[in-house]
Structures are given as C-alpha cells and as structure tokens.
C-alpha cells in the first residue's frame, strides 16, 4: 500500500481542511498543521478551498458535486502533495474525482489532483516517517475506523501505527471496528432511525471497551459518535487523532 512520492525539495504540502474541520473542529485542523510543521514541512493553505463535494455526490446531486470538485482542482493546482485530515474526503478526491470528470477534457487534471491526495496519517507515517515521543500520562483509548479510510483509502493501519508509537497509550480495539457508525452524510437525516440504531450500537461498543477517549480520523464520524456519547451523557471524550497526537507529543 505504501506509495512512493518523490520528496519535494521545498518540503511544501497543501493542506485541505475539509469543511467539517474548518467549521466545527478547527482545533483538529490546527493540530494537523502543527504536526506537519513539527516535521519541517511548510504548509500551503489556499484560502479559496471549500468542500470536497461528497455530500452532494452521495446524495445524487452530481452536477453540484462536480462544480465544487472543479473548484478544488483549480485551487490546488501546483504539484504539491495534498494532505487531508479525513479518510472520507480523501477517498472522495482520490477515487471519485477521476470518475466525475471521466471522458471530459478535465479528466487529466482530476487524475493529477487525485494522485497527489494523501490521508494525513498516511503522510505522517509513510512519507515523513514520524517518530512520536509520548509526553502524556498513561491512558486508554479506542479507535474508530471510518468506512472510507478503511475501504477506499486503506489507511487505517497508519493511524493505528501512530497510536502504537505512543508509549503510554493503550489502544483497545472495538469489537466491531469495521462496522459503520451510521453517519453516512445525508443518510443520518434521510434514514434517521436506522442511523440512530447504528450509532447507538457503536456507542455501546465504545463504552464496553473501557477507553476514556475515542479517537477517529474523520470528523463526520466524530460528530456523529461524540454527539451520541454526549447526548447519552457518557464521560468519554471524542477526539480527532491529529489533536490527540499533537497533545501527547507536546505535553499538553
């Protein structure tokens, strides 16, 4: 699975915030930026970036998705790697952008763009080969694999490897780690009852793990699961892995 990228001599990467991190989880975004910078990477953040287009794409509004995708391709046009702190958005841009523009004159640009997409943890683990020095207190965490990190991007191993580098963190795996949390974008609204049943089971699984923190690499899942945990007044913290890694390695 490991991809070879020719290391950019200027060591610059584009950072794609994702709309959820931008609006709801900016701390996770800052943590991701800080993690990359701590490895000597220069962050480029095109201010005109927005959403990957997945909400519309998955809802059947392909035209709208295409317009928004085109915007991102245009905004991230230089040949730098594009680092994405979400397996789901990364999957959209890596696998579905070429589909969206297949057979059009924009296909080549979409393919070039897709080839530069990296999941954040994939980039940290395989390109930067980070070594993490855990400065936090001993703690037990569990990890939620987002479906698209797992099945489209195939990058869950990297997130877990990074957690594994933290010497005082115990990772307890969920019983049904590979089962969807029920978010699914507009699915959570259009099939609210099924989605609610799914997230309830996910929260039960998390509770049984005994972990004090739930880590995830996707803010859609996090918003769903942490929201359900908070609604059920569970004292388990839901956190984006980037934020957790930054806290642990900076003694916060």
């Amino acid at each position: 699975m490991q991809r070879k990228v020719s290391p950019d001599p200027s060591n610059k990467v584009y950072f794609f915030a994702t709309c959820l991190i931008d609006a709801v989880y900016p701390d996770a975004g800052m943590a991701a930026v800080n993690l990359l910078r701590s490895q000597g990477v220069e962050i480029l953040f095109p201010p005109d970036q927005s959403c990957c287009g997945q909400p519309a794409f998955n809802s059947g509004f392909i035209q709208q998705a295409r317009t928004v995708a085109r915007k991102q391709i245009h905004v991230f046009s230089k040949p730098y790697p594009i680092v994405v702190p979400s397996g789901s958005c990364a999957g959209m841009m890596k696998h579905h952008y070429p589909e969206l523009f297949a057979g059009t004159k924009e296909e080549a640009a979409a393919r070039d763009f897709a080839s530069r997409i990296f999941d954040l943890f994939e980039y940290l683990a395989t390109v930067l080969n980070v070594r993490l020095d855990d400065r936090g207190a001993p703690t037990t965490v569990t990890w939620h694999s987002s479906c698209h990190a797992l099945r489209e991007m195939n990058v869950v191993q990297y997130a877990k490897a990074l957690i594994g580098q933290l010497s005082k963190v115990t990772l307890v795996e969920l019983e049904r780690e590979t089962e969807c949390c029920g978010f699914g974008g507009t699915f959570a609204i259009k099939q609210a009852a099924i989605s609610a049943a799914m997230v309830k089971d996910k929260v039960d699984d998390i509770r049984r793990s005994g972990a004090s923190t739930l880590l995830a690499g996707d803010c859609g899942c996090l918003m769903n699961i942490a929201g359900a945990m908070a609604h059920g007044q569970l004292a388990i913290d839901g956190k984006h892995l980037a934020e957790f890694l930054w806290e642990r390695t900076n003694g916060q």
Binding site: A23, P26, A196
Partner: peptide
C-alpha cells in the same frame, strides 16, 4: 432529526480558515 439522539455540532467561533489567515499562513 440529528439531535433526537445526538447533541448538535458546535460551530467554532473561529474557523480554521480564519485562524490560519490570522497567523499569516502561506498560500
């Protein structure tokens, strides 16, 4: 629908866009 089983997402006071612009990120 969302809040029948979950708390509502809390929109941050400052978006990542704003925060990075405030610190003068390169683009």
């Amino acid at each position: 629908q969302w809040t029948s089983v979950r708390t509502a997402p809390r929109i941050a006071r400052k978006s990542l866009h704003q925060r990075l612009r405030d610190e003068g990120v390169n683009h």
